[in-house]
Amino acid sequence: MRILQRLLMMVVIIWIAASINFLMPRLSDRNPVEEMIAASMGESGGTMEGIEEAVADFERRFGMDRPLWVQYANTVYDAMTFDLGISISYFPDRVSTLVLQALPWTMGVMLTTTLLAFVIGTPLGALTVWPRAPKWVNAVVPIVMILAAIPFYLIGLILIYVFASRLSWLPTGKGYASGLLPDWSWTFAQSVLTHAVLPAMSILLASIGIWALSMRGMMVTVQGEDYMVFAKAKGLKGSRRFWRYGVRNAIAPQVTALVLTLANVVTGAVLVERVFSYPGLGSLLYQAILLNDYYLIFGCVYMLVLTVGFSLMVLDLVYPLIDPRIRTSVTD
């Protein structure tokens, strides 16, 4: 029942996204096909003669000469049938190929760091209001909380300056060293890892505090509950009270937030990937936007909507396990 609702919602969102994607470029005065052909002609040294014909030819291929409502119906139909079409800017690559190529880079860095930040930040936040927390917690937490106020990419800039530019310990950007070809060798893996350190660090530093802060708020509430007093009166060990009674009860909103964050991981990545010229979905999206490649833009959006929808579905399934009291609504 719940799943069905979610699916319906996803269809609606994809439909809205498809509509916006259809509408926006047609409202603007730029012609991407013309720009693309002009650019490629410029590169190959060809003349501007015959560009009109070339454009017309291309537009036929993309179906742009048909009546608007047919184009709209096609767009929506394709969207619903998982047909993402062909990229304009990377012609003749299929959008799905490009998206699937970029996906592992983004997921590798963003997913790992988001989860890591969650795993570190959540207990840290809980410890700030735990009476018997180690001393270092109160020294560390204010720092990570202030860092949480600063956007990822600004921290990224500082990290580049310190570790790449001044100390030269790590590369400034890109997914792997430029001389290498992607393969399963140790050298390549090493290159990928060293290139991932700074982007990962910037996300970690900026987001641990976010998790710590929200967890602290929840933990304060939980600390005041009667069951925490009873847990102590039962003579439970401190660790059990902290994890099973405290954190366990405070964590439900955190998990919701985690899922929503994971769902939005790609857009969060755009600027970080841009700062580090990282070859992920964010960079791809950025390229697509600059070149006005709406098929590619839509491909990325599509991916996002799928991630969001899928994440929410997972949340629906997981939530009853986290909180036995809630069997129905989740995101409220």
């Binding site: 809205i16 916006i20 939005n264 857009t267 600059l290 006005n292």
Partner: peptide
């Protein structure tokens, strides 16, 4: 559920 930066980017470019 729609990522804000994305919508803004799409609007801003157009």
């Amino acid at each position: 559920t729609i990522p804000p930066l994305l919508v803004l980017v799409v609007i801003a470019t157009n």
